[in-house]
Amino acid sequence: MNLVTIDEIHAAAKRVAGVALRTPLLPQLWASPAKLWLKPENLQQIGAFKVRGAYNAIAALDEKTREKGVVAYSSGNHAQAVAFAAKQFGVPAVIVVPDVTPRIKVEATASHGAEVVEVPIGQRESAAHAIAEERGLTLIPPFDHRNVIAGQGTAGLEIAEDLPDVEVVLIPISGGGLASGIGTAIRALAPNAKIFGVEPELAADTAEGLKAGHRVDWPVEKRARTIADGLRSQPSELTFAHLQVVLDGMLTVTEEEIREAVRVLARRAGLIAEPSGAVSTAAFLFHADQLPDGKTVAVVSGGNLDPSALGELLG
């Protein structure tokens, strides 16, 4: 399969410059003697890394196609990202979300002027395809798209530039677009680094699939058990092919480990992370024995969390 290249990621970086925030690497002294840096993608304007891929994909469209508008399906963060990006270009956006999506994400998506359509969780993709066909809109998928993957990879460029001797990179895994992009960039620019994907135990289809050597299907009801609502998707053929090449391993974390990571990030790092964004930190906190020693970057992929849910988690 033809995989995304570092040149495509460099091209994406030029497109998203000035729109996607160049998030810093934050050293964590509380993690001493281990060396940990956090990549706080929760600080993006829409609260998650997804703005990188969404904006790059829309920017790469020809003007005539873009003007007709776009449609996307998402559990929340990609929804906000596409709505935000479409607003920057002044084009219409329709976003299909599961009816179990946290209200903070639904409201934020609507605030960017997008039309939000709520459907049962198992119908979001088919509904988005139907709307695209009916209205002549361009579908911007959450991960199964070269330009989306390349856009997410710009975070990897920044990691390699800011910490050239990085030794371990921890990345949350859902559909696999973020890890595909970051992994491609790190492989090209920091080839000695070890790259690990992190999943909730309750949605560990990627870990099982990589071990088996092929994609495996977990029913949506099974994946929906995890508190990490942004990590309930499964890789596509495209992203799985990337993950097979760029990942050195997979780690899984428990629900309580995820909750504790949210608390640690809030209390020790001063970062509000949604459960999905905290899994890489959970892997560092609870599974260091499965990781190489060395300079470690944990990607905090998002921070869109209902205040009530945050209060519950912090106790």
Rank of each mutant, 00 (worst) to 15 (best):
V116T: 01
P27N: 05
E125F: 04
G230E: 02
G213S: 11
V220W: 12
A155N: 05
A93C: 03
A72Q: 08
P164E: 09
T206H: 14
A60W: 07
L231K: 04
T23Q: 09
A114T: 02
A20G: 06
P219Q: 10
A57W: 02
L189C: 11
E208L: 13
E199G: 04
R259H: 14
T109I: 07
Q45I: 12
R259E: 14
G136W: 09
S75A: 15
D229S: 10
M250W: 12
V91K: 11
H112N: 07
A59Y: 00
L231R: 07
A150K: 00
V71G: 00
S233I: 00
I131L: 08
W30E: 09
I227L: 15
G90L: 11
L139Q: 07
A283F: 07
I104T: 12
G230P: 02
D165P: 11
V51C: 12
V100F: 14
E237I: 10
V216G: 10
D205S: 12
L61R: 08
A128T: 03
L251P: 05
Q88T: 13
G53K: 02
V297T: 06
V262K: 06
R232S: 00
T254Y: 05
I159F: 11
L157T: 11
I95F: 03
A127G: 03
E8M: 13
G113R: 13
F284I: 02
A224V: 01
E134A: 15
T109R: 05
S276V: 06
